[in-house]
């Protein structure tokens, strides 16, 4: 393939992943890997390495806005990163063992399953599962870990106060999110949102922003080990980072996350198809 064509294709893949990521709240990397692997024939370990890099880029790029707007809860994010970083270390070690044993099929199948599962935050919005958030009774961990905060809701035009509960359960899911992140080279945004939503019981906006914020640290943990093992190709990773960052920037600028019902549904279908294809590839069908 012509070098310039190769560059353009990877960047386009990144832009698509970034666009879908910013609309669905997935950060983009979870779609980048199947696009690179199924679409361009990039080996899965290089694609996973590039995805980790893209996750960090979008986390730093997109999350900085939420942090500045004070929607992100820094304390909750930091305290749960204890779990995601430990999990990520374990996940990469498992990935290394799988690659060394040449059992790549496991990675493909697991990736497909996680991809299909990752439509969860979008489905929540599409099916209009109501903002079930209300102030639950605080528990011991609320006090110990100082899990409270408030943010200004543009839509409601008022300050929403909230607090988080069940820190230990939330942390346990975060360990699992970290393992998946390291194992597959993704940010594990969907699992983080699940944990923050259903365990911590945070308002959806705070969950999404805090998850974005956490992804950078989780992905950085895995990246270093991928780097040393040679699962990172600088050209592919660099081009993907440029593409994903551009895509998520365009997405947040021109596509309204609240509206665009049709586009969002279309993207959910794309993610489902990619998930099924990854599983089929894992079983050697395609």
């Amino acid at each position: 393939m012509l070098p310039i064509l190769s560059l353009i294709l990877i960047i386009i893949g990144g832009v698509i992943a970034g666009l879908i990521g910013s609309l669905t709240g997935l950060g983009g990397a979870v779609i980048l890997t199947p696009l690179l692997v199924l679409g361009l024939g990039v080996p899965i370990y290089y694609a996973a390495g590039a995805s980790l890099i893209a996750s960090i880029a979008t986390s730093s790029g997109a999350a900085s806005a939420y942090v500045k707007d004070k929607i992100t809860n820094i304390k909750i994010g930091m305290s749960l990163e204890v779990g995601t970083t430990l999990g990520a270390i374990a996940g990469v070690l498992i990935a290394a063992a799988i690659y060394r044993a040449n059992a790549i099929a496991i990675i493909f199948i697991l990736f497909g399953v996680i991809l299909i599962f990752s439509i969860y935050p979008s489905m929540r919005e599409i099916l209009k599962i109501k903002n079930k958030f209300k102030n639950f009774k605080s528990d011991k961990t609320t006090k110990i870990f100082q899990l409270k905060g408030s943010y200004y809701d543009e839509k409601l035009k008022k300050r929403v106060r909230y607090y988080g509960i069940r820190w230990w359960y939330s942390e346990a899911i975060m360990v699992f999110a970290g393992v998946i992140s390291g194992l597959l080279g993704v940010g594990s945004g969907a699992l983080k949102v699940l944990s923050l939503d259903h365990m911590m019981r945070l308002p959806p906006k705070v969950s999404a922003a805090t998850s974005d914020f956490m992804i950078g640290v989780t992905a950085a943990t895995g990246t270093a080990i991928y780097w040393e093992l040679g699962y990172m190709q600088p050209f592919i990773a660099g081009a993907a980072a440029i593409g994903v960052l551009t895509g998520s920037f365009l997405g947040s600028k021109f596509l309204n996350r609240e509206g665009n019902g049709f586009i969002r549904k279309l993207f959910v279908v794309v993610i489902l198809i990619l998930g099924v294809q990854m599983i089929l590839r894992g079983f050697g069908v395609i």
Binding site: M1, P3, I4, S6, L7, L40, G41, V42, P43, Y46, G49, Y226, W227, E228, L229, G230, Y231, M232, Q233, P234, F235, I236, G238, A239, I242
Partner: peptide, 29 residues
């Protein structure tokens, strides 16, 4: 870096074609 790669037709003793190949042997290791 991308700009330099294309201007110099490669980098780090690899040709541009080797670097941009999706199955490239060039890695961080």
């Amino acid at each position: 870096g991308m700009f330099l790669l294309f201007i110099n037709n490669g980098g780090s003793n690899y040709t541009l074609t080797q670097i941009t190949s999706h199955k490239s042997k060039l890695s961080t290791a």
